[in-house]
Write a protein that binds this DNA or RNA. Structure first.
Length: 293
DNA sequence: CACCAGGCAAGCC
DNA sequence: GGCTTGCATGGT
């Protein structure tokens, strides 16, 4: 186990020699849609109602304008810094050349601990969509219905609460151009807003029961619920099977076409409780190189 | 102009 | 149970 040194200087938080941490890997592996790369290579965006600019400086990671309190109270957990990803990669790579290559390629991936409500809406929007457009829809959602945030002299927007979206009509929501997903977003907002679905209750449930509860929301099916479990509830054994994962698993492991059920079953056998990490390494590797397309 | 995009719900058998 | 189809919008 390593111990990473953390320094607080000039109002910034600096992670010294941060291992297993690369911004492009973290923000371009399809787990969050609200961060973007700046011309200087830094990334900026927001999580819930907190904005962040973050950059790489040599082997260090700099969280700009983030105090010790903000770091220990939120961003430390957000970036999952208590977990040893070196150990995860080593375990996954034992007796598996595919995973060894995939985890070497996306060596700096970490699974972010994100807000449950934000994940529900984000992955409802992700269905039958492409990542650039998902980002655009979520940006318009926050810009139109979130609160304005001031950070580092720039303007960001919070992710709108269920109560805010629950009061909208489909016509009002149509400004975000989410297409047929409008009614699903409103169903989720209304269910949660009126208490028919309780996020804290879902959080307390074992994974299969939490999944069943999530799937009561319109627009949340097998794959979307697995993403919500993985990214919003910390259920690291979840292995969402989308078109990319299906394709690369067929190409690398099956050497033939396979059903979603077969892919899920093989993932459970091979990766077990580390399924979610394996999924992220595979997804980033496959998509970045268009493997199996 | 087809075809597809981190799927899902509803309607069939 | 499994299989098919329509779905809004925008990019290639």
């Amino acid at each position: 186990m390593y111990t990473m040194e953390i320094k607080y200087e000039h109002g910034d938080t600096v992670l010294k020699n941060a291992p297993d941490f690369k911004l492009r890997h973290i923000f371009d592996c399809g787990q969050t849609f609200r961060f973007g790369e700046n011309p200087d290579g830094s990334y900026s965006g927001a999580a819930g109602s907190r904005a962040l600019k973050i950059s790489e400086r040599g082997n260090d990671i700099v969280l700009h304008g983030i105090s010790e309190n903000e770091f220990t109270g939120f961003w430390h957990d957000y970036f999952d810094l208590g977990r040893d990803y070196g150990k995860i990669k080593k375990t996954l790579s034992e007796n598996d050349d595919i995973m060894r290559r995939a985890s070497e390629y996306g060596f700096g991936i970490r699974i972010l601990n994100q807000d449950l409500w934000e994940m529900i809406i984000s992955f409802i929007i992700s269905a039958s969509n492409n990542i650039p457009r998902i980002k655009g829809i979520i940006d318009r959602l926050c810009r139109n219905f979130g609160d304005k945030l001031e950070y580092m002299g720039e303007e960001y927007f919070s992710f709108p609460a269920p109560e805010r979206l629950a009061q909208l009509s489909e016509t009002e929501l149509s400004v975000i151009r989410a297409g047929f997903r409008d009614k699903y977003i409103l169903d989720a907002a209304r269910r949660i807003s009126c208490g028919e679905t309780s996020l804290e209750y879902i959080r307390s449930l074992p994974t299969p029961e939490a999944k069943a509860e999530l799937m009561k929301i319109k627009g949340v099916g097998n794959k979307v619920s697995d993403c919500i479990l993985l990214f919003g509830l910390g259920r690291a054994d979840s292995f969402p099977v989308d078109v990319w994962i299906k394709r690369i698993m067929e190409y690398c492991y099956f050497k033939r076409e396979a059903s979603i059920g077969e892919v899920s079953e093989l993932a459970r056998e091979k990766f077990g409780v580390l399924g979610g990490y394996a999924q992220q390494y595979l997804f980033f590797w496959a998509r970045d190189n268009k493997i199996g397309v």
